[in-house]
Structures are given as C-alpha cells and as structure tokens.
Design a protein around this nucleic acid. Structure first.
Length: 257
DNA sequence: TAGGCCATCTGGTCCT
DNA sequence: AGGACCAGATGGCCTA
C-alpha cells in the first residue's frame, strides 16, 4: 500500500512484494510456516471439521479431501483474500492521492478511517461549493430562469467558459487554503482543538462530521501575494491538475464490478 | 507499556 | 461449486 514508501512510517501496510501472490514469497512467510506446522498438528481435527461440514455421516459419500487438498484450498482462499485486500488498499491509496492533504516524505500517511472521513468531508465541501456557485451564476445572470435551469441541470456546462472557471473559484479558495498549509496547520485551520503533534495525521475528531465545510467556504482567500486564477489558464496547483492515473484506476475498479 | 493501525487467516454467507 | 464479500480473531509494528 505504501504509496509513500519513503515516508516516516516505515511499516509496510500492504506488502507489495506479494502483490502477485507468488507462491515463493508466500511460502517464505513466517505465518505460512506457522500455519503449516499447526495444520500438521491438528490435521485430524481439520478433517473432522471437513467431515462435519459435509454431513459428518459414518460413511463418507464424498471423497475425503486429503490434507494436501485441504491445504491447497486454504492457500488458494487465503491468496484470493490477500489479493482482495491489496486491491482494496490500492483503491485506498488512490483515494489518498486525490485528497486535499499534504503528501510527502515527512508526512505520515492517512489512516484508512481518516481517509474515508476526509473524503466524506471533501465531497461535502465540493457539493456545497457547487451549490454556492449555482446561486452565484444565477445572480450574475439576473436570475434568468433559463440560465438557472441550465445551470442546475448541467452545472459544469455554463454559457461561457469564464463562468465555468468562476464555478471553481470558492472551491479553489478552500483547497488552496487547505493544501497551502501543513497537516497540523490544516488541522488547526478546521478545529478549535489544541495543536496536534507535527507530522501526525488528523484525528478522527477533526475528520469527523462537525463543521469544516462551512468554515472552509467562508474562509477568505489565503493565496499568497499576487497569485490569481485567471480564466482560461490552468491552475498551477496540484489539486487543479488533471486527476492522476490512480483515479482512473479507481474508476476502472469500480466500473469493472 | 498501552493503544492505534494494520495484514493476515479463517469461517460464514451470499451470489453467479 | 467456486468466488466475492464480510467480520472476528490474532499477532506484529509503531508511537505517545
């Protein structure tokens, strides 16, 4: 999983070395060795369990799986489950990469729960920004019902390109104020809680359900100096860049289901 | 050292 | 029947 494998956190949360689930790496696994030892020890019990599952009668109507078959089956199931979890972690990494949260070697990776909570708040913020922009567009065009209905049905397709960029404006404020700060600064930015330790990920309370969205949207523009987001010009910040390929990976993951 | 986070194994359930 | 998904259990690693 460690997309930021060079980070402070040295633990490999998802052992990439076994991504292909090669038998060799797996068989060198300590857990597997333990498993094999234990499996031999209570092999009889295991077969008894199998018998119970298959009816447990005195006469075995089905061919009794020998210990190798049971072991192979168990290995296959474990391997599939491992791969499933790796895919899940990969998707989680993809989510982390598109989160408005500082990435870097000195920043500890967001935990799974933090990633999910932050993603939720992020989506809420985007939705709120979109609603706000719809109102703004309505105001700009004099409350024309036609425009409003068009903006409502196609929020991203506004009459003119500048309007489309305009719709990004408040969001850009919020995101820049988020990204421009360190994680701990961002944390203080959203909460009144006491200062968090540097390099520590946001706590669940920060990422929880109270408040940051409204606060973000009301924040003044914190961009430094003469930075401006000109219509027609790509924003240089990472958040305004095209989504990374991992996002398409995410999409493909969800679409293939 | 306790607590948090994580990977892995495992058995159960549901779906195709 | 086989695979996907899920949740509980377990043990390892890391940090405060």
């Amino acid at each position: 999983m460690d997309s930021d494998s060079g980070s402070v956190c040295s633990r490999s949360s998802s052992p990439d070395l076994v991504v292909d689930d090669s038998a060799g790496s797996f068989f060198s696994n300590k857990m597997f060795q333990t498993y094999c030892r234990e499996n031999r020890e209570d092999n009889v019990a295991g077969q008894g369990r199998t018998e119970r599952c298959s009816g447990g009668g005195k006469t075995k109507t089905r061919s009794e799986p020998n210990k190798d078959e049971v072991q192979d089956l168990r290995l296959k199931v474990n391997s599939r489950e491992r791969k499933r979890m790796h895919d899940l972690n990969q998707a989680m990494d993809g989510l982390r990469e598109v989160m408005p949260y500082a990435h870097g070697p000195s920043v500890r990776k967001l935990s799974k729960i933090s990633t999910l909570l932050l993603a939720r708040n992020y989506i809420l913020m985007l939705s709120s920004s979109l609603e706000e922009m719809k109102k703004l567009v309505g105001d700009v065009y004099g409350g024309s019902a036609a425009v409003q209905s068009r903006a409502a049905s196609h929020p991203a397709i506004t009459p003119a390109a500048p309007a489309a960029h305009l719709s990004l404006h408040p969001l850009t404020h919020s995101l820049h104020s988020l990204v421009g700060s360190t994680p701990s600064a961002a944390l203080q930015h959203h909460t009144t809680s006491t200062a968090a330790a540097p390099h520590s990920p946001p706590s669940a309370s920060f990422l929880g359900f109270h408040a940051p969205v409204q606060g973000l949207l009301k924040d003044p523009l914190h961009l430094t100096s003469s930075y401006r987001h000109f219509p027609g010009m790509p924003c240089p910040c990472s958040l305004c860049q095209p989504l990374p390929t991992t996002t398409s990976t995410l999409h493909s993951l969800s679409m293939t289901k």
